[in-house]
Amino acid sequence: MIEQPTLGELWASRDLFRDPILAATAAGTILGWLGVYVVLRRMVFVAAAVSQAAALGVALAFYAQIHLATDVSPVLGAVSLTFLVSLLFMLDPLRLRITRESILGLAFVFAGGSAVAIGDRISQEAHEIGSILFGTAVLVRTFDLWLILILASLLLIGHIWTTRGMLLSSFDPDAARVQGLPIRLLDAFLFLSVGAMVAVATRALGALPVFAFTVLPAMAALAIGGRLWFVLILSACLGALSGGLGYVLAFMRDLPVGASQTIVAACWVGAALLVRLLIPRVGGLLGR
């Protein structure tokens, strides 16, 4: 029988695992915060489409390196494609006579399909592509860690500063615009924040856990309820815990890291729904 690793062994190897845990925790924090807007704006598909676009960007960068002998950084590929898709979301869907949801669906399907197709042409990097799509990477490069830490910190400061405007413009864009709020600027900041963070985190952690961090902690926090500031903070904390604890769980139970982080994030939703079911007034009690 194979013995499972212990927490002591994890602690002993902390120098090895510190960076990926830190990266996942930081990404989980900011994606958890941003996820509240994504869920409340009913744009869960955004996270899925953007993470697929990031994966496509990385796949394209590898393809360019191998077949076109061009030295394109995978992070640059991810960021470029993510920004391109983010810009697509900023179009006014009414002008195009289609719903925003349809644009998201198109971006998701096209990016996902293309990533798989291009991945098929670069079998030399199949493992790398797999880690990007499903988050099987165990280690994080120092460059990726610093990128995540710096970006997450800057975005968190920016979003704390614009919380009221962002909430009002997300809640009722027309009324917010009438009041003089720069809706397009706030929308652009939100979409580019999601795009940038997803792109950078997808390269380091994988598309699946990044999508999970962007949706599941917010769902759990909203299910418990309470006031908006409480929901934002709770969601950020649950995102952070999903990243960190997910890694520990993966180590302890020898699971793929991305899957483990996703499972932890999903558990928060299950627990929150259970709490909501057992204590219906929990939202009124929390965050007063």
């Binding site: 409340l40 614009t162 405007g165 009002l168 917010a176 709020l181 006031r227 929901v231």
Partner: peptide, 17 residues
């Protein structure tokens, strides 16, 4: 679906930026 109290909405409107 927004978890917002009436007071929050009004305060947020005043101090939106």
């Amino acid at each position: 679906i927004w978890p917002m109290r009436v007071r929050d909405l009004l305060e947020m409107t005043i101090h939106s930026l």
